[in-house]
Each structure stands twice: as structure tokens, then as C-alpha cells.
Amino acid sequence: MEHPIKLTVNGQAWEGSVLPDLTLLRFVRETLALTGTKEGCGIGECGACTVLLDGRPVNACMVLAVEADGCALRTIEGEAKAGKLSRLQQAFVAHHAVQCGFCTPGVIMSAQALLERAPAPSDEAIVEAVAGNLCRCTGYASILKAVRSCTPHGRTGGER
């Protein structure tokens, strides 16, 4: 049986119905056709599917779409505004923190949520925030630099 759900997706209202066994990841990628969010494992281990639910980063593969009823959902597609990259997105470009790019949307969502809840996170907090996002290409150093550059101390500190 389909369940009616209502939520906001990147700030816009969405209403419709979903089957209970549909994961939030499938919902985002297939129903909403927002394919920026990726699947790397489907079991909560890789973080490629990270989206924000009411501001909290979650692994969309481990959430049912029906559970998002009434929530504010944010995906990577909502991060650039009017064609302009967010500060964090710009930092990823500037620090070459992107290689194959498959992990990138998830990493950015995890890090963006951190910067919103703790505008001046310590290095440790940055690592904690993105450690659930596996990246096989970058070795993480450039990712951590990019996030750090968006914090007050990172801005003054410059490159390592």
C-alpha cells in the first residue's frame, strides 16, 4: 500500500505517495530524479548516499522514504544557489578535493551540516564529521583542507 507523504525537498514542497519498502535513497534518485546522491553500498557503510534530514546528515540507504514524511530534505542539488556554488563547493574545487567525484556529493553534505551546526569546528570535529564517507581516490587530505578552509581559523591559516 502506498503512503502519502509531504516534505520539502531543497526548500520546495513535495507531496506524493510512496511504497513502504522504498528507501530514501531510491526515492531521491528515482522518484525525485535527483541523481547527485549516489549509492556505493546500500548498507550504511560508505556515505555516498548522504543527505540532510531536518539538517542532520543521514545515510539515505538506511532510511525509508516514508520516514521522511514531514521533514526538510536537502540533497547536493540544493547546495548551489542560482547557479553559484556554495562556499564549501568552491573550496572543494579550489583545493582539488575532487577526483572521480563519486563520493563528493555525500562528503559535501556531511561537511556542510557540520559547518552549519558548528561554524568553527576543530580539525578533530571535521574528521569525525566526514569519517563515515569513504573516498578511495583523494586520500582525504585535500577534502579536509577544503573543509578547514571554510572555518574561521582555516581562513586565516591558509594552506598547510
Binding site: 543521514v58 545515510n59 563515515g132
Partner: peptide, 9 residues
């Protein structure tokens, strides 16, 4: 326990 994001659920 798990990762930060998992602990959000």
C-alpha cells in the same frame, strides 16, 4: 559506535 551520520538515526 558506527559513524556520525549513522548515529543520527
Amino acid at each position: 559506535l558506527a559513524s556520525y551520520n549513522i548515529r543520527n538515526r
